[in-house]
Design a protein around this nucleic acid. Sequence first.
DNA 1: GTTTAAATCAAACGATTGTTTAATTTTGTG
DNA 2: CACAAAATTAAACAATCGTTTGATTTAAAC
Lengths: 209, 209
Amino acid sequence: MEYNDKQVLIIQAAEKLFAANGFEGTSVRDIAHDAGINIAMISYYFGSKEKLMEAIFAYRISYTRLTIESLLQSDKYTPIQKIEKIIDSYTEKLMAHQCFYKLMAQEQSIREIQQISELIYDSKAKNLEMVKKIVQEGQKNGDFVKNIDVPLMMVTLIGTGMQFVVSQDFYKKFYKMEDASDEEFKKLMKKKLNHHLKSLFKAFLTNEA
Amino acid sequence: MEYNDKQVLIIQAAEKLFAANGFEGTSVRDIAHDAGINIAMISYYFGSKEKLMEAIFAYRISYTRLTIESLLQSDKYTPIQKIEKIIDSYTEKLMAHQCFYKLMAQEQSIREIQQISELIYDSKAKNLEMVKKIVQEGQKNGDFVKNIDVPLMMVTLIGTGMQFVVSQDFYKKFYKMEDASDEEFKKLMKKKLNHHLKSLFKAFLTNEA
DNA sequence: GTTTAAATCAAACGATTGTTTAATTTTGTG
DNA sequence: CACAAAATTAAACAATCGTTTGATTTAAAC
């Protein structure tokens, strides 16, 4: 699906406002005002407010889908290196599109639009299978410990990321970064999150530091 | 704050519907219908829809606040045992009041009501300080490793719990529990979550199984 | 320059929103 | 029973919601 400049403008405004105020908490007039276009343009281009939400997901997913799968199937990396690659990819996407992940968090909880719920479901299932294979590989060659609950491991990975984006402001003060620039703060936070996830899962999977 | 039977009825209906459809996605008529009362009773008892939301938090917090603090300050437990006590308390509350925690997850992301945001903020700060002390104690006596990012450790704890409640249905199939009773399923999930968190944080804090 | 389609607009649409009113019923007290 | 306070109701309130209309402007094609 291709979107013209005006459509992208609307999508980006909607993404921002939906993330901040929720789907039901954002009116099409808010979006139109923020995007600097007439209200009727939303129905004109997308059909409805719901379809606009679907467009946001279609737009983001087409732009954030990284082909790390081929990377993971190769023999160039050890299982723990593959997990680290996944964490790199996840933290990168998370920090680059925070609004979108806030939206995903909301949709997970509220389930407003059937099609989006299915999209999230499929994405989870795909990621789970991918990680499952890596874990089994690591257990086979003795790198990883036995009895790893992969679904719950994924809950921790996704949950940590999601919680991170919704409570970033809170942790600003605990890292004494209140007067740092947004860009500076974001950069440090990404680094911290990345390192945290890597040491967390290395300890969990291998019982080593 | 004390609430009479009718007020509790309204609070419980609102909690359920807010969790399922969001604050803005739930009308006062929906709540009134579900609680079996007249619409006007909501304004009559609580003043407004917003104040009803505040009442939910006041109600739940007064009923779920467990005094584990005194337990944690005693010398009867090792630092790792104290962490386990916190996990026990957290999983217990999480599974007993899933709707409420869904609501918390939404409020964290959307920030609809100032007073509630502050309540969540204070709760986070309090929990962070509590865990910080335990971690320092564990590091002092050599039980825990060095360089533990406690704020991010809390992100993982809370995030895992929150993600767990919003995606429980998804994981139902992966544990082959689709035809188990709700109570049976809930019991197993609580056990699994509890065990997962304990082994995760034990590995993270001590690098041991 | 004319024609046709796409884009944009202000205005209006009916439906639904949270809240209030004023009347009525229920409850508790003397 | 009589009275006052509390609880409950249907109805109405103005405001806002997402969407549509029909007219107008802009852009593209010949």
